[in-house]
Design a protein around this nucleic acid. Sequence first.
DNA 1: GGAGAGAGTTAGTGAGTACTAACAAACATA
DNA 2: TATGTTTGTTAGTACTCACTAACTCTCTCC
Lengths: 198, 198
Amino acid sequence: MTTDEKILKVAIDMIAKKGFKGATTKQIAEKAAVSEMTLFRHFPSKKKILEAAIDRYYYSFQMKELFEHKLIWNLEKDLLMIAETYHTIMKKNKNVIKIAIQEGHNVPGLLEQVNKHPRQLKELIEKYLEEMHKRNHIKDCDYELTAMNFLYMSYGLFISRSFVSGEIITSLSEEDVIKGSVQVFIDHLTPSEVNEKV
Amino acid sequence: MTTDEKILKVAIDMIAKKGFKGATTKQIAEKAAVSEMTLFRHFPSKKKILEAAIDRYYYSFQMKELFEHKLIWNLEKDLLMIAETYHTIMKKNKNVIKIAIQEGHNVPGLLEQVNKHPRQLKELIEKYLEEMHKRNHIKDCDYELTAMNFLYMSYGLFISRSFVSGEIITSLSEEDVIKGSVQVFIDHLTPSEVNEKV
DNA sequence: GGAGAGAGTTAGTGAGTACTAACAAACATA
DNA sequence: TATGTTTGTTAGTACTCACTAACTCTCTCC
C-alpha cells in the first residue's frame, strides 16, 4: 500500500467515526504509521485529504449495468436481488454516507453525490415495475411511489443498523428483515387472483 | 425565556448542525445573546451543556397512552395515524437524533435513549397487529417483522428528508409517500378475499 | 437607599491544532 | 559511488478553543 493510500484509508475511517473536526491530522498520521510531516507533503491541507478520501472511497456503480442483465422477471427473486445489491453498495459506501450526514453541507457536491445511487435505483425499479406490469406479472400502481417506499424501507434498515445501534430494537436478522420486506411488496404488487398460487 | 433556556435552545440547534466540536461556546453565547462568561456561569462545561440540552429537548412519549385510545381498528386509518404520529415525534426530536447519529458513542446512554421510542412503537404495532388478526381484520403473519418493516420505511423517509436532502430524489410529497406506505402494508396484511371490497 | 443576584467586559491562561522550515537519514536507481 | 526521492525528526508559528479571574453595571426587593 502506498503512503497516499494508507493516509486516505485511515482518514476516511477516522473522519466517519469522529467527524471532520474530531479527527486530527496528528492522529491520522499516527494511525497510518507515517509522520505528520509526510501527511502534509502528500496533501496540501486536511480539507483536501477529506476530498481525496471521498473520491477514493466512494464506489460509484452504474445501476443499469449492475442490474439489468440480472433481472429474471420473477418478482420475488428480482426484488431480493435488488435489495441485497442495495445493501452491498451502501455498506461499501458506509463511511462516505456517514460523512455526508454529518458534513454534508460543508463539502460541496457531497449530498448530490450520495443521492445519485438512490435516484438511479429509483428510476431503475420504476422501469422494472412498469415492465413487470406490461408482462402482466404485477398490478397497476404508482411505480415511482412504490419504488420510493421500497428504497425507504431498505434505507431505514441500513441507517438504523449502521449508525444508531438499531439492532438492539429487534433480534431479527438483517437477512430476515430483507426477505420480509420483499414479501410485503410482493403482496402489494401481486394481483389477488394470482396471489393464491403459492 | 430564561438565560438557561436561551443557551440550551441555541446549543441543541448548533451542535446538531455543526457537531459537538464544530459548535464553539463563543458562537453559542453570541447567538443566544449572552456573554460567554454567562454561559459558563450557568453550565460548568461545554459537555454539560450538551447533556442538559439533550435532557431538555428530547421529548419522551409514552406510546401506549399516545396511541391506544386513538386506535379505531380500521387498518388504513390506524396505520396512517401511527405513521403520522411517528413523524411528528421524530421531527420534534430531530436535533437529538442527529446528535445521536454523530456523537452517539461519545454520549453515554444517548443511543439507548433514542432507540426507546422505536422499540416501544415496535411492540405497540406488534400487539396491534395481533389484535387485528384476532378480530379477523388481517391475515396471519410475522407481526414483529411486519412492525419492523413498517418502522424502517418511516425511518428511511424521515432520515432521507431530514438529513441528506433526500427530497431531491423524488418530487413526491411526504404526505403522499406516507399514504403510499400505508397502502403497501394494507395489501400485505389484508386477506385477498377481502381485498376486493375497495 | 442598600444589599445581593445576575449579567457584561476585559484580559488572560494553557492546551491543542493545522501547518511550516530546515536538516538528516534511508532508499532505490543509474 | 553519486544522485534524487521519500521519509523522519525537531522545533516552531499562528491561531483557536474551553474555561477563568476580577471588576463593573444594573436590576430587584426590602
